[in-house]
Amino acid sequence: MEAFEYASPHTTESALKLLGGRWGETEILAGGTDLISAMKDRVTTPKRVVNLKKIKGLKRIEYSAHSGLRMGALVTIQDLLDNKVAREHYPALAQAADGIRGEQMRHMGTVGGELLQRPRCWYFRNGYGLLAQYQGKSLVPDGQNRYHAILGNSGPAYFVNASSLAPILIALGGKARLHGPEGEREVELRKFYTTPMKEEDREYVLKPNEILTEILVPPDKGGKMAVYEVREKTALDWPLVAASVVLHLSGGTVRSARVVLGHVAPVPWPVPEAGQALEGKAVTEEIADQAGKAAVSKATPLSQNGYKVRLAHIAVKRAILSAVKGEA
């Protein structure tokens, strides 16, 4: 790890004063489970690290029937899992959090850090940059791409967003609250993630001098929800594909449906096509299967990841059936 300056401010305001205007110059430290390893691998070599863990206000988790769930960015994955009210109102959020293992990761890792974790793309992690380029050309299409994107992969980015929580939070209509030098702003999470077009870009709209301080989730209003992850390993790894579903039913038929895929594209990938396949219909295994098929209808797999298309199809189907049965 390269040497760096270190600060541990007690308020968001004093933390903001320590941030620079360019990515890479300063890094924000929360749980550290991604950042410290990335610094050891020289994926990032900040000159200054700003630890947020002494800011008490960022560790709150609250629910009200009127405004929904508010989670400070420093709420740990374990805090979220231990919060009975959050589990009761957003069971699928707890399901997604439960996929994050083991206990060390859950006690250290924060909700904010989970949402802002950098891609796991092995080219990125081994020094080829976010766009995995060598001599101006991406190494992914002709390279080892079995875990890469099957959607939104027309280039130049081919990695997948690694967050487990973002897809369900997007399906629930969640927002991110960001603090910057000019004050606060709220961004819908579905607009929070962006596909980088240049190597200097990031995977989200957060600016280098801003801090993600809170996640806001609207009240659940009787939604049926589930997350279905397909994994190679049950721990110490990220899902191959995950589907998050939030359904509203009236009289046995689907009134509205939000389906968001994870780990298939450079951003969490909402699939309105799947929702449309469900709306106005009673959920049967066949209808759920059709929705799964619709979800991957625009997939453009790379040379080694065609299998992920089938996984995403089935993940959507199973998430829908699980949501309807109230299994989350």
């Binding site: 300056e5 600060a7 320590l18 620079g20 205007g21 300063t26 000159k47 200054r48 030098p181």
Partner: peptide
């Protein structure tokens, strides 16, 4: 050693 960051 951070050039353009605001000073605390």
């Amino acid at each position: 050693i951070v050039a353009d960051a605001a000073q605390p």
